[in-house]
Simulated scan of single mutants.
Amino acid sequence: MVEQIVKVLLTSVLVVSASEVAKRSAIFGALIASLPLTSLLAMVWLYFDTRDPEKVAALATGIFWLLLPSVTFLLVFPLLLRKGVSFVPSLLIGIGLTAASYLAMIALLKWFGGGDV
C-alpha cells in the first residue's frame, strides 16, 4: 500500500510541477510536460513490480506507436483556440479526434500484426 501511495504522489508532483511552471513560462512548462516522465515512470514501476523486461519492452513499443496519434490533439486543440473556438468545444473536439486517431492506429497495428494491441 505504501508503494502505491509513493507512486501516486511522485507522479502527481510531476504533473502539478508542469502546470505551475507553465504559469510562469509556457516554454518551460511545455518542456516538462513533453518529457516522457509518465512513460518512464510507468516502465520503472512495471519493471519493479514484475521484473519482466519483455513486459517493459512491450510497453515501450506500445507507447512509441501510440505517441503518433497523440499528436492529433496537440495540433487540433491550439488551432481551434486560435480560430476563435472556445475552450471546452476545442478540448472536446481535440479529444474526439485524438480518440479516433488512437482507434485508427490500434486497427492499423492489429492489421499489420502489432503484437499486444
Score class of each variant (00 low, 15 high):
1 M>A: 09
1 M>T: 04
2 V>G: 03
2 V>P: 00
4 Q>W: 06
4 Q>P: 00
5 I>Q: 02
6 V>T: 11
6 V>K: 09
7 K>Y: 13
9 L>E: 02
10 L>H: 01
12 S>G: 10
12 S>H: 03
14 L>E: 02
15 V>H: 02
15 V>N: 05
15 V>S: 05
16 V>R: 03
17 S>L: 15
17 S>W: 06
18 A>H: 04
19 S>N: 10
20 E>C: 08
20 E>N: 05
24 R>P: 06
24 R>E: 06
24 R>T: 12
25 S>I: 14
25 S>H: 15
27 I>K: 13
27 I>D: 14
28 F>Q: 14
28 F>K: 12
31 L>W: 06
35 L>S: 04
35 L>H: 00
36 P>K: 10
38 T>A: 14
38 T>V: 15
39 S>H: 08
39 S>I: 05
40 L>T: 06
41 L>K: 04
43 M>Y: 00
43 M>E: 01
44 V>I: 13
45 W>L: 08
46 L>Q: 02
49 D>Q: 06
50 T>I: 04
52 D>Q: 00
52 D>F: 00
54 E>N: 07
56 V>F: 01
56 V>I: 04
56 V>Q: 07
57 A>P: 00
57 A>M: 08
58 A>W: 04
59 L>A: 10
62 G>L: 11
63 I>H: 03
65 W>M: 07
67 L>H: 13
67 L>W: 13
67 L>T: 15
68 L>G: 11
70 S>K: 10
71 V>F: 15
72 T>F: 07
72 T>G: 09
74 L>G: 13
75 L>C: 09
76 V>P: 12
78 P>L: 10
79 L>V: 04
80 L>P: 00
80 L>W: 00
80 L>E: 06
80 L>V: 02
80 L>C: 04
81 L>M: 01
81 L>N: 01
81 L>A: 02
81 L>W: 00
82 R>T: 11
82 R>Q: 15
83 K>V: 03
83 K>I: 04
86 S>M: 02
86 S>W: 01
87 F>L: 10
87 F>H: 08
88 V>M: 06
90 S>P: 00
92 L>H: 08
92 L>R: 13
94 G>V: 07
95 I>Q: 12
95 I>E: 11
96 G>P: 02
96 G>E: 08
99 A>S: 07
99 A>K: 02
101 S>M: 05
102 Y>K: 13
104 A>K: 10
107 A>F: 14
111 W>R: 15
111 W>L: 15
111 W>N: 11
113 G>D: 08
113 G>K: 12
114 G>F: 03
116 D>I: 10
116 D>R: 06
